[in-house]
């Protein structure tokens, strides 16, 4: 029967069509993760809304192309310098989720190729954020990879600009989609509807982990609200910006890295550093935008 064949073909076509729309999240990343939700909501997992599909794949490839970006040129001039020599590369890997449900706290790890372990400067740029520069690092030793938690206001290319010792800026990029906008402009915890717990400002936790062949991973966490200046309080007043400005990491052999930070890092920022050589009793000195200083050690006995 003619119509039966037609029917089967038709159903197959429809199935393939729907399937492709649903599942093609695309090869635009190293890593296709699900969501990291707040602890409470994750108790009842939620499906992704507007999961990236083949359309957004095309969009993201377009968006990652700096030529198509309306803001990149100016950003590059401002942050990397007017006459900066910039190369876009794919061996700087940004490991993060494609699709983010909790845009106030987005974990990100940047792994560097060996030729850039001795980089001179590192700047993390989120193009579509009101605060576009999240942090920069001037290292005093070799660093293999770095990690941080960032805020995302909206879908955005995230770019890691790494200056090699030849002065050239190498830039690795990744597109991130957010489920709901406002990682910088809405409160992570809304006191009008919930009880917000804040930790002790300036509390510092340092963890050192051994890796293979004497290498080391340092993770540090600073308890701090990292107010962006874009969030209003219950009375509709802007909560002024208040954030960690500088994190200085050293050990008994001297400085390891000097990190400049902005409120595009999430509250209670976590910084991860992979060093090829183990540091000895790592210490941290933090300064914030109100001029307060915090030490992971007794600063009087220096």
């Amino acid at each position: 029967m003619y119509w039966e064949k037609f029917l089967i073909k038709y159903i197959l076509f429809i199935c393939v069509f729907i399937y492709s729309g649903v599942t093609l999240s695309g090869p635009f990343s190293d890593f296709k993760a699900g969501a990291e939700l707040s602890e409470e909501l994750s108790s009842s997992p939620t499906a992704k809304r507007n999961t990236p599909n083949s359309d957004s794949l095309v969009q993201s490839i377009d968006a990652l192309n700096p030529k198509n970006s309306s803001v990149w040129r100016e950003l590059q001039d401002n942050l990397l310098g007017n006459d900066a020599n910039v190369l876009f590369v794919d061996d700087i890997k940004l490991i993060m989720q494609d699709y983010i449900e909790e845009a106030h706290k987005v974990p990100l790890i940047v792994t560097l190729p060996k030729r850039l372990y001795n980089f001179k400067n590192f700047i993390l740029i989120i193009e579509n954020n009101p605060i576009q520069q999240a942090m920069s690092i001037r290292p005093y030793r070799l660093i293999e990879s770095l990690g941080m938690n960032i805020r995302l206001e909206d879908d955005s290319p995230v770019r890691a600009a790494v200056q090699g010792d030849n002065g050239i800026w190498y830039v690795g990029s990744k597109m991130a989609f957010v489920a709901s906008v406002g990682g910088c402009s809405t409160p992570a915890c809304d006191p009008s509807v919930e009880v917000c717990e804040t930790g002790t400002i300036g509390k510092i936790a340092i963890k050192q982990y051994e890796r293979e062949a004497g290498a080391e991973r340092i993770k540090l966490k600073v308890t701090h609200p990292m107010e962006t200046g874009f969030v209003t309080d219950l009375q509709g007043e802007i909560i002024p910006e208040y954030f960690v400005k500088n994190i200085h990491v050293d050990d008994n052999k001297g400085a390891i890295a000097d990190i400049t930070t902005f409120a595009a890092l999430s509250s209670d920022p976590v910084i991860l550093l992979d060093l090829p050589k183990k540091g000895q009793s790592v210490r941290v000195h933090v300064k914030d935008s109100l001029g307060l200083e915090f030490f992971s050690y007794d600063s009087n006995t220096m």
């Binding site: 890593f31 990291e36 939700l37 499906a47 490991i95 974990p107 991860l272």
Partner: peptide, 28 residues
């Protein structure tokens, strides 16, 4: 000191693949 992101980057462990909603739950 391994981060969750790095574990995810390795793909889903075989053990959990047989569970429904494994990926979503694992990532969260």
């Amino acid at each position: 000191g391994i981060s969750a992101l790095e574990i995810f980057n390795e793909g889903l462990p075989d053990f959990i693949k047989e569970y429904k909603l494994a990926k979503e739950t694992w990532y969260r």
